[in-house]
Amino acid sequence: AEVEGDGKSYELMVSTQLADSHPFCQGFYALAKRVAERTGGKLTVKVFPSAQLGSDEDVIEQAIQGVNVAVVTDAGRMANYVKNIGIVGMAYFADNYDEVMKVQQTNFWKENVKKLAEENGIRVLSFNWFDGARHFLTNKPVKKPEDLKGVRIRTPGAPAWSRSVAALGATPVTMGWTDVYNAVQQKAIDGCEAQHSASYGLRVYEVLKYINKTAHFQLLNGLIVGEKWFSTLPASYQALLLEEFEKQGKITAAEVIEKSDVFEGMMVKEGMEVVEVDLAAFKKASEAAYDELGFAEQRKAIYKEIGKE
């Protein structure tokens, strides 16, 4: 084998709530194939889509406890362990994928990732898995924050999300993503905010009319494993996993960005309308959430480090 271990066999399970058809899962399969080849089958990677091993929170707990499992997670969940990381998940923190990548070169990021590993037993394999920008999807056009007043928008529950969505003018409603289609159809909610891959996958175009291109979240995910299991690996395998997850994250991100436009086109073809929004007004509105969660100073410091504004 190209990468030699200690002769023992290892297995890593990759868990996610995403469906098997999602580009991430396809990325994991590609990665699994390469890892198997490069280790002569000594290190195998198996994929568990659709939350088969439990909710993301459950699986993070499993990883910390020592199960051989990696989880797809956003920055918000990591903020439970190291609060400052949560800023990456705030509205309009970054304008695009490149900018997000720049943040990961900062000392701010490196310090917090170290804290995750040393104080919380969570090892980041790579945090460059990009799922696209999130937009508001509604049944009435939204151009400025005021248009969202009283509009019930489904959003994930973590504070970084719900406070941001509230700051942008909407009424955040928490429910499972898979309930959204029925909930919209049955008017239990008025819309949702999501990235195109998820929106298209759930066929929201059958029940919602407008894609309001707010791009308020740059949905960045990472893959984490437990330090407990990771430290049982020979150093060569550790390095291999870090390398491959970083590499595949980049490849998949490029695919997702390309596919986002395709998905948008398909949703338009199904009858949705794209609405261009007043971005400056939304950005301004988002600041309230930074103040509320105590991230305002932090953001200034990071922007300075990456030379933004």
Binding site: E11, G54, E61, G66, N68
Partner: peptide
Amino acid sequence: NIPISISVQRIVAQTQSF
């Protein structure tokens, strides 16, 4: 590879679906 504490988690998780 499965620590015993996970059995506790899986039992509790059964009650945590809306």
